[in-house]
Design a protein around this nucleic acid. Structure first.
Lengths: 227, 227
DNA sequence: ACGAACATGACGGATTCATGACAGCCGTAA
DNA sequence: TTACGGCTGTCATGAATCCGTCATGTTCGT
C-alpha cells in the first residue's frame, strides 16, 4: 500500500506540480489550501507525512504546525520559499521534522520523505509477527509454533520452512524458492532435501501425515500451505 | 544528562568550530577524523547523533554511513559542502536522516539535531524501568533482581544478559544479538561465552537449572526468556 | 502401463549445547 | 604491597539431536 501525503499550500499551481511529481514517486497525495482545511483533513484521513507551506492565507505555517503537533505525531516537512536560517530554526522549533526550501527538486523531497518514514515507520509497525494458519499459531520472533495450548517441538529448519510457507499461505512455493529462503542462496545440494523436511513437518503438524490436509503437494511445482 | 554527538570530519579547524558551537548549545561532543575512527568510536561509546562529513580521507561519507547503518540505528546527519541535489539524495539513500550543507549556521544545525532527537527519543525511551517476568522483578536502573523479597546476587554480566532477554520477553535472541548488546559491538571472541553465562544465570534463577522453564534455549537460534 | 515425481524409513556424520574445570584479571581488604 | 575471593573468558568433553543423503516403495499423470 502506498504512503499517503497531505500537501498544504495555497498556490494551486504549486500544488499541481508537487502532486504530479510526488504521485510519480508512488505516493498518494491529498491537498489542503489553508491551515484550517489541513487540520480537518488531518483528522479525517491521517496521512503518513504532511508537507506544509509556510505562507498560508489564514494563519502562518508555524502556527499550523504547532496546532498539528497538539493533535498528532504525524511527520511534518516544511516546504517554503523562505531560506532564512532563522525561519528554519523557527519551523523546526514549531515541531516540524524537516525544512526544505523552494525551488525544490522532487527527487530530493522524495528522498527526505523516505528518510523520515524510515525513521518513523518502525514505531507504527508494532504488529505482532504472529501468523495463524488453521489451528496453528506461528510466533515468528519467538520461533514457536502452538496448536491449542501445546507447543509443537519443531527443529530450526522445520520452523523456518513452516514460517515461509505460512507467510505465503495458499501460494505454491517451488523447491528452489524454499531452498533459497530457508537454506540460503549458497546451497548447492539436492533439492530433494525439501521433501524430507516437508515430511518431517507433516509428521508433526498433520493429524494424518499420510494424507496431508494443510501441507499440500503441488506435483511438479512445489508445496503449499492451506488452512 | 546532555546529549552526546559524534563529529566526523577530517578538517581539524572545522571540527574545532563545530565543537565549540555545539558545546555551546549544550551537547557533549566526541570527534573522529576519518571513517575508521568513527566506526570504532561508535561501537565504543555510542552517541545520540552522528554528524558525518562527506569527504573523508579513507573512504567517502556514503560508504561510512552505510557501514554505520549495518551496525546501528543511530541518527546520522550529513554535514557537507556539496550542495548538489544528487548528493542529497545519495546521502539520504545511504541511510542518513538529514543532510545539511556548509557553510552552516550553528543554530540551524542545533535545531535539526533537536528535531531528529525529538523524533527518535520516544522510541528508545519506550523501555520501562522495571521488568517483570514470571516471579522475577528486574529493576534496570537499580541493577537489581528480586524474587519475592530476596535479592538475587547476579554479577554485572549476568544482569545485563537477563535484562536484555527480559526486554525482549518471548522473543528469541541470537548469540550475536546478545553479544552485541551485552558485550558491545567490539567483541570478537567465541560466541559460546553466551552459553556459559546463560548457564550461570540458570543456576541462579531457575528452580531446576537442569530443565529450565524460563530461560529456554532455541536450538540453532539462540535463547529466549518466557514467564 | 509406464516413467517421473514424490513419500518413507533408516543411518552416519556433523552440529549444537550443557557441564565442569581452570587460569587470568581486578578490586578489595589486610 | 600482598593475599584473597569473586568474576570472566576459554576449553575439553560428552550427550543429545539434527541434518543431508540414500535406497526403496508408492502415487500420480499421461
Amino acid at each position: 500500500m502506498p504512503h499517503s501525503l497531505l500537501l498544504v499550500d495555497d498556490e494551486p499551481r504549486i500544488r499541481r506540480v508537487l502532486r504530479l511529481a510526488l504521485e510519480d514517486e508512488g505516493y498518494q497525495v491529498a491537498e489542503a489550501a489553508n491551515g484550517y482545511d489541513a487540520l480537518v483533513a488531518l483528522r479525517r484521513e491521517p496521512p503518513d507525512v504532511v508537507l506544509l507551506d509556510l505562507m498560508l492565507p489564514d494563519r502562518d505555517g508555524f502556527t499550523v504546525c504547532r496546532e498539528i503537533r497538539r493533535a498528532s505525531d504525524v511527520p511534518v516537512i516544511m516546504v517554503t520559499a523562505r531560506t532564512d536560517s532563522h525561519d528554519v530554526v523557527a519551523g523546526l522549533e514549531a515541531g516540524a521534522d524537516d525544512y526544505v526550501t523552494k525551488p525544490l527538486v522532487a527527487k530530493e523531497l522524495s528522498a527526505r520523505i523516505r528518510a523520515l518514514l524510515r525513521r518513523v515507520e518502525p514505531a507504527n509497525a508494532r504488529q505482532p509477527d504472529v501468523l495463524v494458519v488453521g489451528d496453528l499459531t506461528i510466533d515468528v520472533p519467538g520461533a514457536e509454533v502452538t496448536r491449542g495450548d501445546s507447543v509443537l517441538p519443531l527443529t530450526r529448519t522445520e520452523f523456518k520452512l513452516l514460517a515461509e510457507l505460512a507467510g505465503a499461505e495458499g501460494k505454491v512455493l517451488s523447491r528452489e524458492q524454499l531452498l533459497s529462503k530457508v537454506w540460503g542462496y549458497g546451497y548447492f545440494g539436492d533439492s530433494r532435501i525439501v521433501d524430507v523436511h516437508i515430511r518431517r513437518l507433516r509428521l508433526k503438524i498433520e493429524h494424518d501425515p499420510a494424507s496431508p490436509k494443510h501441507l499440500v503437494t503441488a506435483r511438479g511445482l512445489g508445496y503449499r500451505l492451506v488452512s
